[in-house]
Design a binder for these strands. Structure first.
Length: 820
RNA sequence: GCCGAAGUGGCGGAAUUGGCAGACGCGCGCGACUCAAAAUCGCGUGUGGCAACACCACGUGCCGGUUCGAGUCCGGCCUUCGGCACCA
């Protein structure tokens, strides 16, 4: 009796069975072969699971299911990153309390994540907004505080006028708020920072050895922006004891420093400005500080600046040089001052040209100093006009100047970074309150761990105030407290923490999710971490992925973790596009996964998403393309169904087919392991086509191989076919990846190309392991080869076993035969 | 401007260490089934020289090079995407 493939019925049946059997759950304490397979958890939006989420999770899940078939105890947890500005902004827009909104979203997400057949360990799910979770987020903050890695300090910070809160540097993209696109402004506020800069070197150095997608490593290197050089001071003339310190990566050009530039916010500006210059300088500084960062740091803007009238002594040349104020020098980098070397720095060159300042050349480029320079020369060369340094190469001079400066006590070698400390205060409602108390007598006092969590109060008005304070500041029941140290009246910190802090440690919590008395179980940590495979999007290259590494290192240094780097392997998945463009509501090309599940079933959706293109590059979703995969599922079903209807032979397959079976197992396995899911699908299609062509003699071993190999992509249909093939246990629990017999991977004979002068002229079948002579003799018997040779004997023969035989007829200059 | 990734049929994309370019799928064409259509199945499908076969030439962004042989390696460009950017 034939049965038709009904994806809805099959998938509904197995979803239920899997849930009952707890497929996906592992014994976290006993599992003999632990494998932690992690995919970045979602932010549960109101729109529901995005097709991009389905794409990302299917890739990770396919990998996890493959690992499980290999016999690993795969732990694949899932959770919800539900705190943060994004959720809160949406709640404000809908005018619904975020707590209620999020609860709905989370339950919708859970449903969809079940629908997509993820093999998740739901018992360990986390929700960052639950007090049972954020209690420990606060605990993490306190650990950092006790370690001296959390500090409240006054600093110029990025303020988003639309989100009404400060942001971390990482959350400002080209001068605009990452969330809403509004241009940020600089405010001077007292805020909580986490000292990630203390880990800059380690964060950078470890990258070398890490097995991560190269794009992510590069992005992190760029972001950390390490540069090594010299910090040097020039004394200010007429101000004994005062010197301008600056950082330079080109100490070899110090003789060419013909002026000094201070940033407008530099503290020395007003102290050294001469009376005559003061009005102009003050006007300039005021105007510069009022300018938006976005505008001020625009590369294309013409250089502006004012002479302070003061002079500095170039300690290398002994000459006095003018000190200018200009806004192309940033107050936030290095010391906020530079020595300007206009001949060898394009920015200084432009500035010197604009204001008629001298441009002395001290490095001679390989082609000589140009007669009329139109731009600065920043490359290496020979040092000139620099006294004792003359004639040295610029790298040698660089070292000598640094040695000299250190010896003379004029400066020291220094390393600077682009990376800034991580600002985690948010003047918002929807996050974990920062667990600190401000006491008039004791100052800033941490909340004792025993009093955690500091509960986020349920308030009606969660709207941000815009005063620089969180909405919590107006909740007196929350604010008013007693000092944990002296017992006197005190106020709570009212800012909440950045939601990237929530996600900076969630992967540590999963294995210990049920722990109520501590954040982490050391045994579980030791057993499951670091994560074996982590998959996520490129967009988190310098946010989540950098913060996470920092938190992990810090917790390691405090003795909470036995490792520094949390993710052994990280792979970034690509981005899905549709109709040639990124999906967006305004474009109207958004794909709704629920509709696809309803029309084709999750098995086909999963398999198509993986077939669409290379997982790590993404792909273009085609409405027609998915039909092809849907047809493929039907073909697989019909093949098994047809053979079942007349009885499945247990005989061994013929040798040629057995060879193909083993090759398919090997190829699909290596593809899954490398996340090359697209080629795994095409190999499976080829195999299914071959079995269909041989349907009359197809055997049990072949059908079961096809079913198991396909199961990581299409779990339900394969589970059903497995059952129909007579197995009592579930494929996803009991089945094992079939073993490959390497003997089958080599043929006795192989067809190779016969080339004449590099052009394929014929093909011959030769014995594997045969000699060049044998192959040549065979090839020369062929008419086509003879005619291509044009009657000549080959002048040279190149034989690549198993690949090609190339006969060189043409006499080339290098060919000794040509010299006859 | 600097750094990184990538350019292959009408389309998505395959192709160990340099060794038969275009697997697999979509689309398209022809055929079978059908009163007809849809669905399904079979065959064909890089371009040109022919309407077709045989055969030949050309063909992996562009120019040049190395090699018996280059999608793959080297040099110089062009384009697209991503990261960084008055960071001294």
């Amino acid at each position: 009796m034939r049965v038709r493939y009904n994806p809805m019925a099959v998938e509904a049946k197995w979803r239920e069975r899997w849930e009952q059997a707890g497929v996906g759950e592992v014994d976290l304490d006993q599992a003999p072969r632990p494998f932690y397979n992690l995919v970045m958890f979602p932010y549960p939006s109101a729109e529901g699971l995005h097709i991009g989420n389905v794409f990302a999770y299917t890739g990770g899940d396919t990998y996890g299911r493959y690992m499980a078939l290999l016999g690993h105890d795969v732990f694949e947890p899932m959770g919800f990153d539900a705190f943060g500005i994004h959720s809160e902004n949406f709640a404000l827009k809908m005018n619904v309390h975020p707590a209620r909104l999020i609860a709905n979203n989370v339950s919708h997400f859970r449903e969809q994540l079940h629908r997509m057949e993820g093999r998740f360990a739901w018992s360990q799910a986390v929700d960052t907004t639950s007090p049972a979770y954020y209690r420990w987020t606060q605990w993490v903050f306190l650990q950092l505080y006790h370690r001296g890695l959390a500090e409240k300090k006054r600093a110029p910070v990025n303020w988003c006028p639309s989100c009404l809160t400060v942001l971390a540097n990482e959350q400002v993209v080209q001068g605009a708020c990452e969330r809403c696109g509004t241009l940020v402004v600089t405010r001077h506020l007292e805020q909580w920072f986490l000292k990630i800069t203390q880990y800059a070197d380690r964060l950078l150095d470890h990258l070398e050895e890490m097995d991560w997608s190269p794009t992510i490593k590069t992005a992190q290197r760029n972001w950390i922006g390490r540069s090594a050089g010299l910090e040097l001071s020039f004394p200010v003339v007429g101000h004994p004891g005062t010197a301008v310190a600056f950082f330079t990566t080109r100490p070899d050009t110090v003789h060419g420093a013909s002026f000094v530039v201070l940033a407008p916010e530099h503290p020395l500006v007003s102290a050294i400005t001469t009376d005559g210059a003061r009005p102009a300088v003050e006007a300039y500084v005021t105007a510069a500080l009022a300018r938006r960062d976005q505008e001020r740091t625009d590369v294309n803007r013409a250089k502006t600046g004012v002479d302070t009238g003061a002079r500095a002594l170039n300690v290398a040349t002994g000459r006095e040089v003018p000190i200018w104020v200009a806004d192309y020098v940033l107050g936030s980098y290095g010391t906020g001052a530079i020595m300007a070397v206009p001949a060898h720095d394009q920015r200084d060159f432009e500035f010197a040209n604009a204001f008629g300042l001298p441009i002395p050349w001290v490095i001679e480029p390989p082609g000589g100093v140009p007669a009329t320079p139109t731009e600065a020369y920043g490359g290496p060369g020979t040092v000139i006009h620099s006294g004792l340094l003359n004639g040295l190469s610029s790298p040698d001079a660089r070292e000598q100047v640094m040695d000299w400066a250190e010896r003379e006590g004029l400066g020291q070698r220094r390393v600077t970074y682009r990376l800034r400390d991580w600002l985690i205060s948010r003047q918002r409602y929807w996050g974990p309150p920062i667990p600190m108390v401000l006491c008039p007598t004791c100052g800033t006092v941490p909340v004792p761990e025993s009093e955690l969590p500091v509960m986020l109060p349920d308030v009606e008005n969660f709207r941000p105030l815009g005063t620089g304070e969180s909405p919590l500041a107006s909740v007196s029941a929350f604010v008013e407290t007693t000092c944990p140290q002296c017992g006197g009246p005190a106020r709570r910190e009212t800012d909440v923490s950045d939601n990237f802090l929530d996600s900076a440690w969630y992967y540590l919590r999963y294995p210990s999710a049920e722990e109520t008395e501590r954040a982490l179980s050391p045994d579980r940590i030791a057993k499951w971490l670091p994560v074996n495979m982590y998959i996520g999007g490129h967009e988190h290259a310098v946010l989540h992925l950098l913060y996470t590494r920092f938190i992990s290192m810090a917790l390691h240094d405090m003795g909470h973790l036995p490792f520094e780097e949390p993710f052994r392997v990280f792979r970034a998945h690509g981005t899905m596009i549709h109709e040639g463009a990124k999906m967006s509501k305004s474009r109207g090309n958004v794909i709704n996964p629920d509709e696809l599940f309803d029309r084709y079933g999750a098995d086909s959706v999963r398999t198509y998403l993986m077939f669409m293109g290379p997982y790590q590059e993404g792909g273009d979703f085609s409405d027609q393309g998915i039909q092809g995969v849907y047809r493929f599922m039907h073909r697989v079903w019909d093949l098994v169904d047809e053979v079942l209807s007349r009885g499945v032979p247990d005989a061994a397959p013929p040798a040629a087919r057995e060879r193909e079976r083993h090759r398919t197992i090997a190829k699909v396995g290596s593809d899954y392991a490398a996340l090359h899911h697209n080629t795994a699908v095409s190999t499976l299609m080829t195999y299914a086509n071959a079995l269909t062509a041989a349907r009359d003699t197809v055997t049990r071993a072949e059908l079961e191989t096809l079913v198991i190999l396909l199961s990581p992509l299409a779990p339900a249909i394969t589970e059903e076919l497995w059952e129909r093939l007579g197995h009592a246990g579930m494929l996803s629990q009991d089945a094992r990846w079939p073993t490959v017999d390497p003997a089958y991977l080599v043929d006795a004979e192989v067809e190779i190309a016969v080339q004449v002068d590099g052009r394929v002229r014929d093909r011959i079948v030769v014995a594997v392991g045969g000699t060049q002579e044998q192959a040549l003799a065979q090839a020369l018997e062929r008419e086509r080869v003879q005619s291509a040779l044009g009657g000549h004997a080959p002048a040279r023969v190149v034989y690549v076993p198993g690949r090609a035989l190339n006969l060189v007829a043409a006499r080339t200059e290098r060919d000794p035969a040509a010299n006859e």
